[in-house]
C-alpha cells in the first residue's frame, strides 16, 4: 500500500516535471535532435505544398528551410508536420512542433490568450471570395442568400460572419476541417462561394475541375497578416525565428541573392559584411553561427527570390508583389537593420 502511494506520488510529480519542461530551451532541443520540426499546411500551393517527390516547397516552407540553414548550415535539416487549421495551435502549444509556419493570421486573441507569439509577417494577405462565372456576380455585396464553404477554426469564418452581418445579408456557412474538403465541396456545387485568404483562393483554384470557370471577386474584406508562430516564454527561439525572416528581407534590400552572395561576401560594404557575418557577432547573439544569414541566403535565397519562386507572376499562382513589396518600393515588407 505504502509503495503504491509513493509510486503514485512520483507519477504525479513526474507528470508535473515533464509538462513544465516544455517551455524554454527550444533552440537547445532543436540542436540536440538535429532538425527543426516545422508545422505546415496540408497542401496549399505556393505556401506549403509537397511536390510529386514528397519535397515541401512554398513561401512558408522557405522560412523553415531558412531556420535549418541558420542553425545547422543545412536547409534540409527540417521535418514537416502537416496540420489542419484546427490542429495547428494545439500542436505548437504541446511542443509537437518547434515553429508553426502555416499561413496563420496574426490576431490579438491568438497573440495574447493562446500562449503563443507571432514572429513577424512573411505575407500580407486579405480575405476574398471566389464564385462561378456563370452566376454573373461582380461584387461581394451581391452574395446575399449564398451558401459559403470555408475552413473551420479560421479567422475567415469570423470575418465572413462580420461582413455579412455588417451588410445585412443572409448566408449559410458550411465549415470543413480540411482545405481539400472545402475545395471538393465547392467544386461539387454544395456551395456558391468559396472564401479564404485571397492568395489561398488563387492557389486552390488550380485544384478545381475547370479553374477557368471561376472568378475571384475584387473585395478584400479583412487584413490577414500571415506569419510564423512560436511558443511564448522562449525569447531566444522567438528572436531567432524573427531575425531569420528579417535576414531574408534585409538581403533583398541590399541586393544580396543566392547567386551573388559569395561575391558580396568579399566586398567592402560594412552593412553587407555585418549581415554575412564577416563583421560583428550577430549570429552568436542569436545562439547560432555567425554565418547564419550567409547560409540562409546561399541556400534559400532572399525574400524576393522566395516570393518569385513560389507565388510570383511566373508561377501558376501569378500573384503580384503588391503590398508585399519592400517598403522602399511602396510595399509593407520592412526589416529592422542588422547592426
Amino acid at each position: 500500500m505504502k509503495k503504491a502511494i509513493v509510486s503514485a506520488a512520483l507519477g504525479v510529480a513526474a507528470l508535473g516535471l515533464a509538462a513544465s519542461g516544455a517551455v524554454a530551451g527550444t533552440l537547445d532541443d532543436v540542436k540536440a535532435k538535429g532538425f527543426v520540426q516545422c508545422g505546415v499546411s496540408q497542401g496549399l500551393a505556393g505556401f506549403s505544398n509537397p511536390d510529386d517527390k514528397g519535397n515541401w516547397t512554398g513561401i512558408d516552407v522557405d522560412l523553415c528551410r531558412a531556420l535549418g540553414a541558420a542553425i545547422f548550415g543545412d536547409s534540409t535539416k527540417v521535418k514537416y508536420t502537416p496540420l489542419s487549421a484546427k490542429e495547428r495551435f494545439t500542436a505548437l502549444q504541446s511542443g509537437e512542433i518547434d515553429v508553426l509556419s502555416r499561413n496563420t493570421t496574426w490576431t490579438a486573441t491568438r497573440d495574447t490568450s493562446l500562449g503563443l507569439n507571432f514572429a513577424g509577417v512573411n505575407y500580407y494577405d486579405g480575405q476574398g471570395f471566389m464564385v462561378r462565372k456563370e452566376l454573373g456576380i461582380k461584387s461581394a455585396l451581391e452574395l446575399s442568400g449564398a451558401s459559403i464553404c470555408t475552413n473551420t477554426g479560421t479567422t475567415t469564418e469570423l470575418n465572413v460572419a462580420d461582413y455579412f452581418r455588417a451588410n445585412k445579408m443572409e448566408y449559410e456557412i458550411v465549415a470543413f476541417e480540411k482545405a481539400d474538403e472545402v475545395v471538393s465541396a465547392y467544386d461539387s456545387g454544395r456551395c456558391d462561394v468559396y472564401t479564404t485568404d485571397q492568395s489561398g483562393l488563387y492557389s486552390q483554384r488550380l485544384k478545381l475541375t475547370n479553374p477557368g470557370d471561376h472568378i475571384v471577386l475584387p473585395e478584400i474584406i479583412s487584413k490577414e497578416p500571415l506569419g510564423p508562430v512560436v511558443r511564448q516564454g522562449d525569447d531566444q527561439w522567438f528572436n531567432l525565428v524573427k531575425w531569420t525572416h528579417f535576414a531574408m528581407v534585409n538581403a533583398e534590400e541590399m541586393g544580396i541573392t543566392s547567386a551573388n552572395v559569395d561575391e558580396k561576401k568579399g566586398g567592402d560594404d560594412p552593412a553587407i559584411k555585418r549581415v554575412l557575418g564577416t563583421e560583428g557577432a550577430f549570429g552568436e547573439a542569436l545562439g547560432v553561427g555567425n554565418d547564419w544569414a550567409y547560409n540562409i541566403i546561399k541556400q534559400v535565397g532572399n525574400y524576393s527570390e522566395s516570393f518569385e519562386r513560389n507565388v510570383g507572376p511566373k508561377t501558376p499562382l501569378a500573384i503580384a508583389r503588391g503590398v508585399n513589396a519592400l517598403w522602399s518600393d511602396g510595399g509593407l515588407q520592412y526589416a529592422p537593420p542588422i547592426r
Partner: peptide
C-alpha cells in the same frame, strides 16, 4: 460528423470553439 461538416457537438464545440478560444 466532423468529417463531413455536419455541425454536431464535436464539430462546432469540440472543434471550432476550441480553435477560436484555444482552451482545449
Amino acid at each position: 460528423a466532423v468529417a463531413i461538416a455536419y455541425p454536431d457537438l464535436m464539430a462546432v464545440f469540440g472543434g471550432t470553439a476550441l480553435n477560436q478560444t484555444g482552451q482545449a
